[in-house]
Nucleic acid binder design. Structure first.
Lengths: 151, 151
DNA sequence: TCCTAATGGATAATTATTTTCCATAAGGAA
DNA sequence: TTCCTTATGGAAAATAATTATCCATTAGGA
């Protein structure tokens, strides 16, 4: 989906819910829609400061909480890296996290529907979401490690 | 594995590494080995206070960080629930988390080896660990919801 | 028993996130 | 377009989890 398309989608959905579209919110939507990675609140805040010098971190957090509640953003919780946000695919999907540089990548999708069904049958839970993260070193960090060993 | 067996295992491994076995550490090992659930640092601290009135939360955190580094405990990070610890199966395995009561259950195991192999081939990452969490309502919370609606 | 580095505990510090409170502004209504 | 109401933004304080500091204590080998 194109960036403008995704932004328009967020705006439309929020208007339906009788929520206001403010310049600050729109700016945050744009950042989320145009981020390939998974920015933190702090990263989003930093990217907005030039255009919105009065922007407050609290506003970023409020907007993220709001988008999360509306199902328009996926929150990935990390107590060490800080939480990260995905506004492009706000539904469960796998991630690969580099333990070297902290990069978070979306691999091609595959779904866990079959496994989820089995889990529900086995445990009696009603499962509505999941999270699947793989941890390792990205190609760049692997190379860097080799160089460090050689040098 | 029996509780004593697991505790003995932790003690043996730490002694190998030239680490000291103190009464406080031993007590934390026992709690971890005998917890079916996934206690938080605070929960472990609370359980120890009766026997060790001078126990400090810092000691619990230090010991958990130490066990994590030694690969004897699995840390599950949650920025909202607080981190939880699993000293019985300190290796990646799936969890089911109840969004109602916060309970964390281990379903029967299945492995993601095949999927992990595919991920590595696709992305070029060297994957060394993963995390798979399912979110939903446990049977008790489902029943409670029904009762709330009826009442 | 002695010795010494590792450890425990009280406390302060950090860091991410949330709340408060009030002035401001969005956007529907007139 | 102007007005009005109420949601929102922003500064700052408050929370809460976790980590670091500092020093007295103690585990456990010599």
């Amino acid at each position: 989906m194109m960036v403008e398309e995704r932004v328009a989608q967020m705006v439309a959905r929020l208007k339906d819910g009788e929520h206001r579209i403010t310049p600050q919110r729109l700016a945050i939507f744009k950042i989320l829609a145009s981020s390939a990675g998974h920015p933190s609140a702090e990263t989003i805040y930093g990217a907005l400061l030039k255009e919105y010098p009065t922007m407050s971190l609290a506003t970023v957090y409020k907007t993220l909480a709001f988008l999360k509640q509306e199902g328009e953003v996926l929150e990935l919780q990390f107590s060490d890296l800080g939480n990260r946000y995905d506004g492009n695919k706000p539904y469960p999907h796998p991630h690969i996290i580099c333990t070297g540089c902290g990069e978070i990548v979306d691999p091609c999708l595959f779904d866990l529907n079959d496994i989820t069904q089995k889990m529900m049958a086995e445990t009696g839970f009603t499962i509505v979401a999941h999270r699947l993260d793989f941890y390792g070193l990205c190609p760049e960090c692997q190379q860097k490690n080799l160089n460090d060993l050689a040098g």
